[in-house]
C-alpha cells in the first residue's frame, strides 16, 4: 500500500508574525520552521499504518529549497521517501493541482493532509485534491482503520462524531485525535542516521497559475488596556458585559 502525507512547512507556533515589503510578504527573518502540527498527527498515523498494513510512506511538500529541512525531519520520524515539488506555494489551488499531477503519476491508496495549515490555514488543500482526483474524502478526521481496500474513519461534526466507511483511495484531513499527542514520534539518532540514506526527489513544477493572491497583510489592532474588576464586585462585571460590551 502507498501512503502519501502532504507536509506544509510552517512557522513555529510561538512565532511573532511580521510582514515586509510594504506588508506584502511574510517576514521569515529569525523564524523557525516546523512540520504543520495537523500534518504531524497524520504522518505519525501513516508510520503506524506501515507496521499494520505493510505500507510505504512518502512525504511531499510543494515549496522551495528551504523546506527540505522539514522533509528530512519527516524522514527521521519514519517516512520512507520524500518528494519536493519545486516552486513557491502561492495559493491552495495551485498547490493542490501540483499534488494532483504527482498523484496521477504515482498512485497512492491513502493521501493524508492536515485539516488546515497554521500559516495560511485555509483548510483547502485536502478538499481541492479530493475534488480534482474524485477520491473519497474526509476531513477533521479523528480515527482511521484500514483493512484491505476498505477504510473506516470518523470525523468531528457539530456536537459529536460521525463514523463512515469507504473504499480506497481516500484523502484524509488529519488532526489531533487521529493519534494522540503522546504518540508523536521524536526522531532519535538512529532515525536521523537512517534518514540520510533515504531519497529526497525534487520534481519540476507544472507551473500552475494560482487562483488567489495575497495582496497585503495586516495585523489586528493593538488591544486597549484590560479593565480590572475586583473579585468582590462581580455585579460590576455583569453590568459591563450587559451594558458596555453588550454580549450577554
Amino acid at each position: 500500500m502507498n501512503i502519501l502525507v502532504c507536509i506544509s512547512n510552517v512557522p513555529d507556533t510561538t512565532s511573532k508574525i511580521n510582514f515586509i515589503e510594504n506588508d506584502s510578504k511574510f517576514d521569515s527573518n529569525g523564524i523557525q520552521y516546523i512540520i504543520n502540527p495537523n500534518d504531524e498527527f497524520g504522518l505519525t498515523k501513516a508510520v503506524k499504518l506501515k507496521e499494520s498494513n505493510d505500507a510505504k510512506v512518502t512525504v511531499l511538500t510543494v515549496g522551495e529549497h528551504n523546506v527540505e529541512a522539514t522533509l528530512k525531519k519527516c524522514l527521521a520520524i519514519g517516512a520512507d521517501k520524500a518528494v519536493r515539488i519545486d516552486c513557491p506555494a502561492i495559493d491552495a489551488f495551485s498547490v493542490a493541482k501540483e499534488i494532483e499531477f504527482h498523484c496521477k503519476d504515482t498512485f497512492y491508496d491513502i493521501i493524508i493532509c492536515g485539516r488546515e495549515s497554521i500559516d495560511y490555514n485555509g483548510g483547502l488543500v485536502p478538499g481541492l485534491l479530493a475534488g480534482f482526483l474524485d477520491y473519497n474524502f474526509v476531513t477533521n478526521c479523528v480515527s482511521l482503520e484500514v483493512e484491505g481496500d476498505k477504510a473506516t474513519f470518523s470525523r468531528e461534526i457539530s456536537g459529536g462524531t460521525e463514523i463512515s466507511e469507504s473504499l480506497l483511495p481516500i484523502v484524509i484531513g488529519s488532526q489531533k485525535g487521529l493519534v494522540e499527542e503522546s504518540d508523536l514520534i521524536i526522531p532519535n539518532m538512529r532515525g536521523i542516521m537512517m534518514a540520510r540514506q533515504k531519497t529526497l526527489d525534487v520534481i519540476k513544477s507544472r507551473g500552475i497559475k494560482p487562483k488567489a493572491y495575497d495582496l497585503k497583510f495586516n495585523k489586528p489592532e493593538v488591544k486597549s488596556e484590560v479593565k480590572l474588576i475586583k473579585p468582590n464586585e462581580l455585579d460590576k462585571l455583569i453590568d459591563l458585559l450587559e451594558n458596555e460590551a453588550k454580549v450577554i
Binding site: D91, A92, F93, A96, N121, G122, G123, L124, V125, P126, G127, L128, L129, A130, G131, F132, F137, T139, N140, R155, E156, I157, S158, K211, A212
Partner: peptide, 22 residues
C-alpha cells in the same frame, strides 16, 4: 461550520474555482 467548510473545499475542487475561507 464543519460541514460547510468540508463541502466548500470539495466543491471548489470539483468546479476548479477559487475558494477562500475565514
Amino acid at each position: 461550520s464543519p460541514d460547510s467548510k468540508f463541502l466548500g473545499a470539495h466543491l471548489s475542487g470539483m468546479t476548479e474555482s477559487s475558494f477562500v475561507s475565514n
